[in-house]
Design a protein around this nucleic acid. Structure first.
Ligand SMILES: [Zn+2]
Ligand SMILES: [Zn+2]
Ligand SMILES: [Zn+2]
Ligand SMILES: [Zn+2]
Lengths: 148, 148
DNA sequence: ATCTTACTGTTAATCTATAACATTCGCAAA
DNA sequence: TTTGCGAATGTTATAGATTAACAGTAAGAT
């Protein structure tokens, strides 16, 4: 599978993940690895259920725990508008804001960055004296592939 | 309750709602009215369950149907990051993009507009040849009231 | 009057996520 | 080595959110 969507793909990302875990004293265990690999090897966003099917696990807590861990570690993002998870494409950039283009045909998801837009949004919030802790930008539509 | 957050509040909004329904040949029925009024009279975002409690209805389909109708009519927005619904503050501006400041303390939600930021985001999508049909911007944080 | 479509009432099912608790694992201090 | 501790897992069951299905009613058009 090609990798136009990830800055550092699969192997590199796994390395980043392992290092990140070690840095903070956590373990990149088997179940976490399984979930992460399932996500990084698919550029699509996967629901918890789809993940469970893919890694052959029908015990929800195991998958949900791995997802919670990976999400908190910043290795995976949760896309609330479609209730699905995706491996982060910029994990090395810690604490960055999540911005997604989500194709409703093929479910492929591209994580992109538009710092200038984010800046304007932050400005808006600041004008309202609102202290932002978490921002999510989710754009649903049809990707270039699926427009044909 | 004061109305710093709505451009046209309660009565006016209800009127807009009724007109909008009539225009498209739909009815502003009792259950829809109940749900809409519960939302418009609270500036907070309410979950489906909270709504059901508030309008004294424990038959999910009724509430969910009303919510689906109101959402499709553009009178109510669904805020996916917190699984809650809020009455739209700009219903007269049809098809506008949803942007929210969501206070995680008091759960009050402000719908705001930042057209220049949206413009930049659209540009980003366009550069990737991505055809956007629906955009949601959700900023979680602490409102000015709750910072004290 | 009857036809059609929108809308409601009700029951039950499905999908999604978490609680609770016992067990094991990895690691470090005694 | 062994003891102790927190992190992580295994397992069962439950809670919570949303929808399917189908029968029935209401309102406007012809
Ligand atoms: Zn990311
Ligand atoms: Zn696509
Ligand atoms: Zn709105
Ligand atoms: Zn607040």
């Amino acid at each position: 599978m090609s990798c136009k969507h990830h800055h550092n793909c699969e192997k590199a990302a796994k390395l980043t993940a392992e290092q990140l875990c070690e840095t903070y004293g956590f373990r990149f265990t088997e179940s976490r690895k399984q979930v992460f690999e399932a996500l990084i090897s698919s550029h699509k966003a996967l629901t918890a259920k789809e993940l469970m099917v893919q890694i052959g696990n029908n015990q929800p807590p195991i998958t949900y725990r791995a997802l919670e861990f990976l999400t908190e570690a910043g290795l995976v993002h949760f896309i609330s508008s479609i209730n699905a998870y995706i491996a982060c494409a910029h994990a090395e950039d810690e604490g960055h804001i999540s911005q997604f283009l989500i194709c409703k045909e093929c479910h492929e998801v591209e994580e992109f960055q538009a710092p200038d837009a984010v800046c304007l949004l932050m400005q808006s919030a600041k004008n309202g004296n609102f202290q932002v802790s978490d921002t999510s930008i989710e754009m649903l539509g049809v990707c270039s592939e699926c427009q044909n």
